[in-house]
């Protein structure tokens, strides 16, 4: 991250914030529709979620408490840097606890702890267009959304079934929002898709390189695309988290040695830690201190 000798509140200038804010209001009014906006250079590379950062910068105020996660973890370089960035340019309080945050910026996960009314979840999105891999031309995908022509998407999913016997897509699994727009939920595991449905939190999506903002208001229908004979299913894990014993959460496989030793641990580090603090212990965990 480059030095920021002089900066505006939340880094962006007022005109840019206004432009992004207007896009956010339209996005909320048209759930799942991708609103174009003029993305700005941010003092971090595109892969770091500049779209999400610009959305957060445009909504954040001094009373907010910000949490940033990357693949479920609060302590990756990316998450730590973005948190430090906003602590500096917006003087906001930060947290790692989901329940304490008013804004949660995320890359690739939705927290395990159910979100609540008043919270805002900001997704960093690399590719906002769910139809992109079927049709690379923006003019065409725009037309498909306008005409609600989503047949190709179903064909693609059905080809999966023909080839693999099931829908093989596990990340960025397409959803339909409020019965109208097909939307890319960003590269979250499909495990998280059901959490988007009727969530009490406002969900905002920012794609910096692709100049798109979209939204799912609270209490909005988000349905994963599927077929009657092949209904949508989330991933299931054979074992619980090795550290906290959690089941029904998303787990990452961690390789322990070169002899095939491995364990599954919570991807949501905050949730795992809270569980261990509450006394939950997994097969390899011996309480919180030992686990760290």
């Amino acid at each position: 991250m480059t030095a920021l000798p002089q900066y505006n509140f939340a880094y962006l200038d007022e005109q840019t914030k206004r432009m992004i804010r207007r896009a956010i209001l339209k996005a909320i009014a048209i759930p799942g529709y991708q609103v174009p906006f003029s993305s700005r250079e941010m003092p971090m590379p595109y892969g770091w979620g500049t779209g999400g950062v610009q959305v957060t910068a445009s909504i954040i105020g001094p009373d907010d408490v910000l949490k940033v996660i990357d693949q479920g973890a609060d302590d990756t370089t990316n998450a730590v840097s973005i948190r430090a960035f906003f602590a500096k340019v917006a003087q906001v309080q930060t947290t790692t606890h989901t329940a304490e945050a008013s804004i949660i910026q995320t890359r690739h996960r939705i927290p395990e702890k159910p979100l609540t009314e008043g919270q805002v979840l900001v997704y960093q999105v690399p590719i906002p267009e769910p139809l992109r891999f079927l049709e690379p031309r923006e003019t065409e995908t725009r037309k498909m959304h306008a005409l609600e022509e989503y047949g190709l998407m179903h064909v693609k999913l059905y080809e999966d079934i023909a080839r693999h016997g099931r829908i093989a897509t596990t990340y960025a699994y397409p959803v339909k929002v409020e019965g109208r727009y097909v939307m890319d939920p960003s590269p979250t595991p499909k495990f998280d898709n059901p959490k988007m449905h009727m969530s009490p939190a406002l969900q905002l999506f920012g794609a910096g390189r692709e100049h798109r903002i979209y939204a799912v208001p609270p209490y909005t229908e988000v349905v994963s695309l599927d077929f009657e004979d092949h209904p949508f299913e989330i991933q299931h894990f054979a074992e619980p988290c090795a550290l906290c014993g959690a089941t029904e959460v998303y787990l990452d496989e961690v390789i322990l040695d070169d002899r095939g030793g491995h364990m599954f641990v919570c991807s949501d580090t905050d949730n795992c830690e809270e569980r261990r603090q509450a006394g939950h212990v997994g097969s390899l965990g011996t309480g919180r201190e030992a686990a760290e």
Partner: peptide, 18 residues
């Protein structure tokens, strides 16, 4: 202007989201 626009915007955002 900076802080007041932010809090007005949040009111508008919350109003349209709810």
């Amino acid at each position: 202007p900076v802080m007041q626009s932010q809090s007005v915007f949040r009111a508008l955002m919350d109003a349209l989201a709810n």
